[in-house]
C-alpha cells in the first residue's frame, strides 16, 4: 500500500483518460433509457425514466433477431473456416518441404499489401454470378480465407519444438495425422488468439455486408444498424438502444477473452 500512496498522480491521469473512454458509452446507455423528450432536454436529464420501450421498438421495427442470427452464422462460419484453412496451410508452410513452398507463401502474403478496394468489385461479381447476393454464403465466402491468419499460424507453428512430431513421424503417422492430433492441440493458444481477432473483425465488418446484402432480412447487425440509422434519423433513444444491443455481445466476449485478444494484438505488433 505504501507504493499505492505515491502513485496517485499516475492514477489521476489514467482515470481522466479512462473517463474519456467510457463517457460515450455511459451516454449511450443513459440515452437508451430516456424518452425522446428527456433526451432532447438541456441541461441533460441524468436520471432517466427507464423507457424500455426503446429496446422493444428495435425488436419490433427491425428484423433484429434475424440480423443477430445472421451475424452469429457469418462470424462462426468465417472464423471456423479461417482457423481450419489457415492452420492447415500454415503447418505445411512451417514444417513440410515441397517445391515452390516459399514462393507460394510470399505470393499469398502479397495480398496483405493491397488495399481491399482492389478485391471488392470482382468479389462482388463472383457472389453475384453464383446467385449468392442477399444470402449467408455470400456474406461468408471471401472472409473464409486469410493471408494474415496463415502468417500468424505459421509463426506459431515455427515456435513449437520439432521433437514432438519427430516421434510421431517415426511411428509412421502421415503429416495430416500429425497436424491434427499432435500439432493442433499444441497450437491452441495461437488458434484462440487468431479466433478472437477473426470474431472481432467479422462481427464489426461493415463494407462487405453493405455491398452484398442489401435486403434487411439478410443483413448482419452492422449493416442493420446503418439501416436503422437511415430510418430513425433523430430518434436517438431508439438508435442508442439498437447500437447497444448490437455491440453488447462482442463487448461481453471481449471481457471474457481479453487475454487472448491482447495476445493476438501484441503478436501483430511484435513480428
Amino acid at each position: 500500500m505504501r507504493s499505492g500512496g505515491r502513485l496517485w498522480p499516475v492514477h489521476l491521469v489514467l482515470a481522466v483518460g479512462a473517463a474519456a473512454m467510457v463517457m460515450p458509452f455511459f451516454w449511450q446507455v443513459l440515452t437508451s433509457l430516456k424518452t425522446f423528450t428527456e433526451a432532447t432536454r438541456t441541461p441533460p436529464v441524468w436520471i432517466p425514466s427507464f423507457e424500455w420501450a426503446n429496446f422493444a421498438k428495435v425488436l419490433d421495427e427491425t428484423p433484429f433477431l434475424q440480423q443477430l442470427g445472421n451475424t452469429v452464422v457469418m462470424t462462426t462460419g468465417r472464423t471456423l473456416a479461417q482457423l481450419l484453412f489457415c492452420s492447415l496451410a500454415a503447418y505445411a508452410f512451417a514444417r513440410l518441404r515441397f517445391p515452390g513452398r516459399d514462393v507460394i507463401f510470399v505470393a499469398l502474403l502479397s495480398v496483405l499489401m493491397v488495399p481491399g478496394q482492389l478485391f471488392l468489385i470482382p468479389q462482388y461479381q463472383i457472389i453475384q454470378g453464383l446467385g449468392w447476393l442477399n444470402t449467408l454464403p455470400g456474406l461468408i465466402a471471401p472472409g473464409m480465407f486469410s493471408a494474415f491468419g496463415t502468417f500468424m499460424m505459421r509463426q506459431f507453428f515455427m515456435t513449437l519444438p520439432a521433437e514432438v512430431e519427430e516421434a510421431a513421424r517415426l511411428d509412421g503417422a502421415h503429416p495430416l495425422r500429425i497436424f491434427w492430433s499432435v500439432m493442433l492441440p499444441l497450437a491452441r493458444p495461437g488458434l484462440l488468439a487468431l479466433g478472437v481477432l477473426t470474431v472481432l473483425w467479422s462481427w464489426n465488418d461493415l463494407m462487405w455486408p453493405l455491398i452484398v446484402n442489401t435486403d434487411p432480412e439478410s443483413m448482419p447487425l452492422s449493416a442493420g444498424l446503418s439501416a436503422l440509422q437511415g430510418e430513425h434519423m433523430t430518434d436517438y433513444p431508439v438508435l442508442m438502444a439498437g447500437s447497444l444491443m448490437a455491440s453488447a455481445p462482442i463487448i461481453v466476449l471481449f471481457i471474457i477473452m481479453q487475454k487472448q485478444l491482447i495476445q493476438g494484438i501484441a503478436f501483430t505488433g511484435s513480428k
Binding site: W27, Q28, L206, S243, L244, A246
Partner: peptide, 9 residues
C-alpha cells in the same frame, strides 16, 4: 465496439 455503433454514439 462495432464501428457502426461508435458512429451512432
Amino acid at each position: 465496439t462495432m464501428p457502426a455503433a461508435v458512429a451512432m454514439i
